[in-house]
Design a protein around this nucleic acid. Structure first.
Length: 427
RNA sequence: GGAGAAGUGGCUGAGUGGUCGAAAGCGCCUGAUUGCUAAUUAGGUGUACGGGUCAAACUGUACCGCAGGUUCGAAUCCUGUCUUCUCCGCCA
C-alpha cells in the first residue's frame, strides 16, 4: 500500500506506474473520494466535540429539567455524529479498497515493460554452462535412475504435483539447507524456523490473496489461517503492528520453512519434475531496514544469492525484472536464473531465486514502524526478501549441472562436508 | 479439548460510569545545583489522523488487547474474539 497523501499529491505518477505495471487502479476516484472524506471527517469531529461538551455539562446540571434537556441535545448530536461517521467510514472503506489494488512505485532504474519480455539481463555467474561430451539427462531421469524422486507415490498419497524424495537426494537437500544456513548465519542473518501457516491478515499484508479463485494458497477450512507460500509471509508478519527502535535495524533473518502453492492456473505452463511443485522447502532471507538502507541491502542480498550459486557450481544469469512482472509489493526485483541442461531442448535458464525490495509497501499494510530516539513520530520500515535456496529448484540445478556420463552426480565441494560423499548415484 | 484468571502509556502498576490520555514509581529528556563515572531538585516526556504555521507554537478527534453493544456519557457495565498465565485432559 502506498501512502494516501502521496497518492493524492502524485496522482499522475501513480497512474503512470500502474500503466507500467499493467495494473488498472482507479486513482482518480481516490483523489475525489479523499477530498469528500476529509470534509466528512471534520464534520464528524465537530459534531462529536459538541456532543461531548453537552455530556460533560450533564454532570453539573442544576436540576432534573436541565439535565433532561441536555440529555436530549446530546442524544441528537450523537445521532448526527453517527450518521456523519457512517458516511465517512463508507468512503474510507471505498478508498482503501482501491488503495489495496495500487502497486508499489518502481525503482527509477527498473526496466519498463508490461511483461517478462522486457526483463533486463544484468550479468552472469562465475561458471559457464558445461559442455557435456554425452547427452545430459534431466533431473527426473536422474531421479528415476537412482530412485531419488517418486512422483507416482506422491500422486497416490497426496495428489498430482507432490513427491517423495529419497536416498542421497535427501542428503543433498539437507546439505543445501545446511550450507545456506551456515553462510547466511555468518553474514548476520539469524536462522529462523517459522510456522508453516499464517493468519490470512498477514498473508494480505505481505501481498498475497489467501482466498478466492485466483489464490495460490492453500487455506484451512473454518479457520482464518493458510499454509504459507514462502517464509516471507511469516517473517514479514513477525513484527506486524510493532514499533521498532532505529538502533535495532537492520534486522536480518534467515527463514527456514516449507512452502505450499496450489499453482492454480499454471497447468498450461506445467513443467517436468521438481520445477513447479505444490510443496518444497525454502531457505529465505528477509530484512527489515531503515528506508535509507534498503537499496544497499537489496544489493547485499542479491550478492549473497550469487555467491551461493557460484559456490555450488551452478551457472546462472542475473535479471532485473521489468515493471510489468514485479507483482504488487516490489519496488525492484532481481531474479537469478540457473542454467538447467535438462530443460527444454539442450538446456534453458530457469528461475531459482528472486529478491525484492518492497520499500514501505508491506510495512504500511502490516503496520511495522520504527522510531528514532529523540525524534517525534514514527516512520515505516522497509522490507526486503530474497531466496537463498528453494529446494527442488536448487536440486534441479545441482543434479543437471554436475552429472557425469555414468549418471552419477559430483557433489559440489562446499556441500561435501554435509553429505560425506564426493559423488552420489554411483552404481 | 475442559475449567478458571488476566490483558492499562517504554516498563512496573493505580483506576469499577462523568472533570481520565489516564495516579504513582521507574526509565528517558531539559534546566538548576554539588568539583568529581553519582546524588539532590524543577520541569518535560505516547501514537495516529486532521486543522494551523515557511517551520514551530498551538489546536481538534481517536486510541486503556481487538470488535461490537448498553448509556447523554465507558478504561470502568454487557457480548464476542484474540493473546497470556494456572489447573485438568490428551499427545509428538
Amino acid at each position: 500500500m502506498l501512502d494516501r497523501k502521496f497518492v493524492i499529491e502524485n496522482a499522475e505518477a501513480v497512474l503512470q506506474n500502474c500503466a507500467n505495471r499493467n495494473v488498472s487502479s482507479d486513482v482518480g476516484k481516490i483523489v475525489e473520494l479523499e477530498k469528500q472524506r476529509r470534509e466528512k471527517l471534520q464534520e464528524t469531529e465537530k459534531l462529536n466535540a459538541e456532543a461531548k461538551a453537552r455530556s460533560k455539562e450533564i454532570g453539573q446540571a442544576k436540576d432534573d429539567a436541565e439535565r433532561e434537556s441536555l440529555k436530549e441535545a446530546a442524544r441528537q448530536l450523537r445521532a448526527d455524529k453517527d450518521a456523519a461517521q457512517k458516511a465517512h467510514d463508507e468512503m474510507d472503506a471505498q478508498i482503501r479498497e482501491i488503495e489495496l489494488t495500487i502497486p508499489n512505485m518502481a525503482h527509477p532504474a527498473c526496466p519498463v515493460g508490461v511483461d517478462d519480455k522486457s526483463n533486463l539481463e544484468l550479468g552472469h555467474g562465475k561458471h559457464k554452462p558445461s559442455e557435456f561430451d554425452f547427452k545430459p539427462l534431466d533431473h527426473l531421469e536422474l531421479g528415476e535412475k537412482h530412485d531419488w524422486i517418486d512422483f507416482e507415490g506422491g500422486a497416490r498419497t497426496t495428489g498430482q504435483g507432490f513427491y517423495f524424495l529419497k536416498g542421497d537426494l535427501v542428503l543433498l537437500d539437507f546439505a543445501l539447507q545446511q550450507y545456506a544456513i551456515t553462510q547466511l548465519s555468518a553474514r548476520g542473518f539469524v536462522p529462523t524456523i517459522t510456522p508453516d501457516l499464517a493468519r490470512d491478515s498477514v498473508l494480505e499484508g505481505i501481498g498475497f490473496m489467501p482466498r478466492g479463485p485466483e489464490t495460490q494458497i492453500y487455506s484451512v477450512e473454518g479457520m482464518d489461517i493458510s499454509l504459507i507460500g514462502t517464509a516471507e509471509i511469516t517473517l514479514g508478519g513477525l513484527y506486524s503492528g510493532k514499533t521498532l527502535m532505529d538502533t535495532e535495524l537492520p534486522i536480518k533473518l534467515c527463514g527456514i520453512s516449507h512452502c505450499y502453492r496450489t499453482e492454480a492456473g499454471a497447468a498450461g505452463r506445467a513443467s517436468r519434475g521438481l520445477y513447479r511443485v505444490h510443496q518444497f522447502t525454502k531457505i529465505e532471507m528477509f530484512a527489515f531496514t531503515l528506508p535509507e538502507q534498503s537499496d544497499a541491502m537489496h544489493e547485499e542480498i542479491r550478492q549473497i544469492e550469487c555467491d551461493l550459486f557460484d559456490a555450488i557450481g551452478v551457472p546462472y544469469r542475473i535479471v532485473d525484472t521489468a515493471t510489468g512482472d514485479l507483482g504488487g509489493p516490489a519496488y525492484r526485483k532481481y531474479d537469478l536464473e540457473a542454467w538447467m541442461p535438462g530443460r527444454g531442448d539442450g538446456g534453458e535458464y530457469g528461475e531459482v531465486t528472486s529478491t525484492s525490495n518492497c520499500t514501505d509497501y508491506q510495512a504500511r499494510r502490516l503496520n511495522i514502524r520504527y522510531k528514532e530516539k529523540g525524534k517525534k513520530g514514527t516512520r515505516f520500515v522497509h522490507t526486503l526478501n530474497g531466496t537463498a535456496f528453494a529446494l527442488s529448484r536448487a536440486i534441479i540445478a545441482v543434479l543437471e549441472n554436475n552429472q557425469n556420463a555414468d549418471g552419477s552426480v559430483t557433489v559440489p565441494e562446499v556441500l561435501r562436508p554435509f553429505i560425506g560423499k564426493d559423488v552420489i548415484g554411483v552404481a
